[in-house]
C-alpha cells in the first residue's frame, strides 16, 4: 500500500503543477462546483417527487363534481372500487391492508431465515463457503422481481399452496407474500451480516473465554450487540417489500378488499397503480388521478420507514466507530 502511495505521489510530483496558482484555483473551484451541483441533484429529485405527487394529489382531492372524494373518506374509507359501478368509492384502507398482508407474510418468511443465514455467514461459515454463499445471495438479489412474480404464479400457487388447501385461488396474497419474502431475503441477509460483522471480535473473545458455546456467543452477545443494525436491516427490507410492484401485480390478484385472509386475492397500492397506468382508465379521469393519491400514500409510508431505518443504522454505526 505504501509503495502504491509512493508511486502515485511521485507521479504527481513529476508532472508538477502546470498552471499558475490562479488557474489552478479556478480549475479546482469549477470542478468542486460541478460535483456540488450533482450532489444537489439528489435533493432536487426528492423535491420533485414530493411536488409532483402533492400537486396531482391536490388535483385528485379538488376534482369537481365528485362528492365521494375527500381527504377524510380517502384515509378512513373501507371500500376501494374506483372502476366499478356508477358510484366509485375511494377509501384507501383496503389497498393499505393488502399491502400490509403481503408485507407481513414476506416478513414472516424472510426475517427469521435472513437473520439465521446472516448468523451462519458471520459466525460459522468457513471463508470459502462464505464466498460461495454470498455469490448465491447476490444472484438472488439480482433476479428481476417480475421473475419472482412469474414463479409465484406458476410454481408457488399451483405446486406448493394448492396441494395444501383448495381454498387458494389462482391469485392469492400468500403466494405473492412468499415471493416477496424470497425477494427481500438477500437484502435482510446481507444487511444483517454487515451488522453482525461490525460487532468487535473482542466481545466474542470475551464471551468464549467465559465458556460460551457458539450459540451463546451468537444469541446472547453478537445479535444483541448488533441489534440496532439488525432492526435497521429489517426496516429497510420491509420497505422494499411494501414498494414491490411486479410480484403483486402478477400474483396477488386485482380485487381490493379489506381482509387478513392469506388465501384470498388482494390488491396492493402498487398493484393498483400498475392497473391504472397500464391503461385501464382514461387519463385525466378521476380514477387516473386517484393513483397519484395512492402513490403519495405509498411514498410517505416508505419514506418514513427508510428514514427511521437510516436513523437506527446511523446510531449503530456511531456505537462502534
Amino acid at each position: 500500500m505504501i509503495a502504491v502511495a509512493a508511486r502515485n505521489a511521485a507521479d504527481i510530483a513529476e508532472r508538477g503543477t502546470p498552471c499558475s496558482l490562479r488557474m489552478r484555483a479556478w480549475f479546482e473551484g469549477s470542478i468542486k462546483a460541478l460535483l456540488w451541483s450533482l450532489t444537489c441533484f439528489t435533493v432536487v429529485t426528492t423535491a420533485a417527487i414530493i411536488s409532483v405527487l402533492a400537486y396531482e394529489t391536490y388535483g385528485f382531492f379538488t376534482i369537481q363534481n365528485h362528492p365521494e372524494v375527500s381527504v377524510w373518506s380517502f384515509f378512513v374509507g373501507t371500500e376501494w372500487s374506483p372502476l366499478l359501478g356508477a358510484q366509485p368509492m375511494f377509501g384507501v384502507l383496503p389497498l393499505v391492508a393488502g399491502t400490509l398482508l403481503v408485507t407481513t407474510i414476506a416478513g414472516i418468511v424472510a426475517l427469521p431465515i435472513g437473520l439465521m443465514t446472516a448468523v451462519y455467514l458471520s459466525e460459522y461459515a468457513p471463508a470459502r463457503r462464505r464466498t460461495v454463499l454470498k455469490a448465491v445471495l447476490e444472484i438472488l438479489a439480482g433476479v428481476p422481481t417480475v421473475v419472482y412474480g412469474f414463479f409465484a404464479l406458476t410454481f408457488i400457487t399451483p405446486y406448493l399452496l394448492q396441494p395444501l388447501s383448495n381454498s387458494f385461488g389462482a391469485y392469492n396474497a400468500m403466494s405473492a407474500g412468499i415471493a416477496v419474502g424470497i425477494m427481500i431475503l438477500p437484502i435482510v441477509c446481507s444487511l444483517c451480516e454487515d451488522a453482525l460483522r461490525a460487532v468487535p471480535q473482542s466481545l466474542r473473545d470475551g464471551a468464549y473465554a467465559l465458556g460460551s458455546t457458539k450459540f451463546d456467543v451468537s444469541a446472547k452477545v453478537v445479535v444483541p450487540a448488533g441489534l440496532s443494525g439488525v432492526i435497521a436491516a429489517f426496516l429497510l427490507a420491509l420497505t422494499r417489500a411494501i414498494g414491490e410492484t411486479m410480484i403483486v401485480a402478477l400474483a396477488a390478484g386485482g380485487l381490493a378488499q379489506l381482509t387478513a385472509n392469506p388465501t384470498a386475492q388482494v390488491q396492493t397500492m402498487t398493484a393498483y397503480m400498475v392497473q391504472i397506468f397500464l391503461g385501464d382508465a382514461p387519463a385525466a379521469g378521476i380514477e387516473y388521478k386517484s393513483s397519484y393519491a395512492v402513490a403519495f400514500t405509498l411514498f410517505l409510508i416508505t419514506f418514513f420507514l427508510t428514514w427511521i431505518g437510516a436513523l437506527v443504522l446511523r446510531r449503530y454505526r456511531e456505537e462502534y466507530e
Binding site: G206, A209, P224
Partner: peptide
C-alpha cells in the same frame, strides 16, 4: 481470561 483491551458487553 482477561484481555488486553477491556471488552465489556454492551
Amino acid at each position: 481470561m482477561v484481555f488486553q483491551k477491556p471488552n465489556p458487553f454492551p
